[in-house]
């Protein structure tokens, strides 16, 4: 908790930085090439122009990202995500065809990391995995509110909560800097002691 003021200060600076965003422009240009299916100089130039116009017309705060992706762990994250997606789909499918009426819950999960980036990724991944849909997110405390489907059996709510933490840990381990991973480990130990 002691590092929060500095992080917020940094986030504030980042949210003011708009204007020229080369990475976003390149991303839009790549998307443009995907749409046109052909790599020609005309398409590349047009893509860059579209990227420039889009980033200038709809400026977004650029995301604070201090870490670096680790290919093996990213692959693990993606693989686990697909397994989760399949499990989730089977669960919802079974429920859709069964006469049972699901018992649900809305839970609050304060994340261990403090970053818009990890909050966003964790929320995105959790929206598509078994039994949870993100209802609300709070940037100020990195808290997610999730709707859990079919948690009538005992222990299911705690399981859902633990799952969010597992996804977050996977995300930070795959994309975070050493410092952020150590931070997460420390927080986890503190919680285990508490």
């Amino acid at each position: 908790m002691t590092d929060r003021p500095t992080k917020q200060g940094r986030r504030h600076r980042a949210s003011r930085r708009g204007g020229f965003q080369p990475r976003a422009i390149i991303a839009v240009a790549v998307a443009w090439l995907f749409l046109w299916d052909r790599i020609t100089w005309g398409n590349i130039v047009n893509g860059l122009i579209v990227g420039l116009v889009v980033t200038l017309a709809f400026p977004l705060p650029s995301i604070e990202f201090a870490g670096h992706p680790r290919p093996l762990r990213v692959a693990h994250l993606i693989l686990r995500f697909f397994i989760d997606l399949v499990v989730a789909s089977i669960q919802v499918t079974r429920l859709a065809f069964s006469p049972k009426r699901p018992r649900n819950a809305v839970i609050e999960v304060p994340l261990r990391s403090r970053s818009d980036f990890y909050l966003t990724i964790t929320a995105e991944l959790n929206a598509l995995v078994p039994g949870s849909v993100v209802l609300d997110a709070r940037r100020s405390t990195s808290t997610l509110f999730l709707h859990l489907l079919d948690v009538g059996r005992p222990g299911a709510i705690e399981e859902g909560r633990a799952h969010v933490y597992r996804v977050e840990e996977r995300v930070v381990r795959a994309l975070g800097s050493d410092e952020e991973i150590a931070d997460l480990e420390r927080r986890k130990r503190e919680e285990e002691l508490a």
Partner: peptide
């Protein structure tokens, strides 16, 4: 089917996101 059969908006969101995305 889930979209039609689930009892409320929040449950229906599950049906609208997961099997649909995998599908």
């Amino acid at each position: 089917v889930g979209l039609v059969r689930f009892p409320d908006t929040l449950s229906r969101l599950h049906a609208a996101t997961k099997p649909q995305t995998l599908g």
